[in-house]
Design a protein around this nucleic acid. Structure first.
Lengths: 136, 136
DNA sequence: CCTTTTATGGAAAATATTTTTCCTTTAATA
DNA sequence: TATTAAAGGAAAAATATTTTCCATAAAAGG
């Protein structure tokens, strides 16, 4: 996995302790919402401000390092930008997972039917994850 | 198209002038955000409150009449619940359109890969609509 | 290294969004 | 109609996000 400081530099973001922590949290959790991110940050930076969280998240989005994932029935989470994938949300344990699925066919069909030129797709699936099915 | 008052009654919602207007707006526009809906409502009900808009939207969601559509880079819109479909958002004119595309294959593949039992899918595609391609 | 430049972090205030409360009015129904 | 339960609106409260301002820290050049 790429160095955290390098990631920031590649995206024209100054390397600061707060930003390093944010990116490390994203790497660790994969998906995290503002509230949880703030909670984690407070552990290491007891005086960190929510404004810092918001400002950094927005800059990281603007600079193409991360993206917001809007989820049905819950708060947005943020993730490092990587290869295209879709999101699975478990209705029981509320975890969010990535799945890499070919989306070419559905996009092709949608382009044909709508006349749009499609540049990006956002796919989220709700359901019950394997673990929660077992713990039923 | 089904009568507006009937739609409300079928979903256990009292028929009020404000609710009729909300549903008529949804029928007319297909997709509308809170701000625009409030603006439209004000034309007919100059003293309508944003609280009324929010309370009604939430009740309509709870009663299965409408659903929220969370969109990338913009505010959520609301729509009457109908057959499954995906959403196309134009990056130029920002309109939102429905497209009915078979999603079985992608869902089946995601279930296989993830082990989830999927109950619902949310698909939004960004791009440029046919009209905006022409007006280029 | 040390200095200069520029951006960042944090506190507080401002703004925006959504929900709740409380009371009057209205819709449903008998 | 009279009764009951729910809805609408005003205002306040709660929540979420952004902005401002200034001291501080990171980057870059000497």
């Amino acid at each position: 996995m790429k160095g955290t400081a390098e990631l920031l530099k590649e995206h024209q973001l100054k390397v600061t302790p707060q930003r390093l922590k944010i990116v490390m949290m994203l790497k660790k959790h994969g998906h995290i919402n503002i509230e949880d991110l703030y909670g984690e940050m407070l552990k290491e930076f007891p005086s960190v401000s929510l404004a810092t969280i918001y400002k950094n998240i927005n800059q990281m989005i603007d600079n193409g390092l991360i993206q917001e994932v809007k989820l049905p029935r819950s708060k947005s989470v943020y993730e490092l930008i990587k290869d295209p994938h879709l999101h699975m949300v478990c209705d029981k344990c509320h975890k969010v997972e990535d799945v890499v699925v070919g989306t070419e066919k559905i996009i092709e069909e949608a382009e044909k039917l709508s006349g749009y030129i499609i540049t990006e797709s956002f796919i989220t699936l709700r359901g019950i994850c394997a673990e929660c099915q077992a713990t039923q």
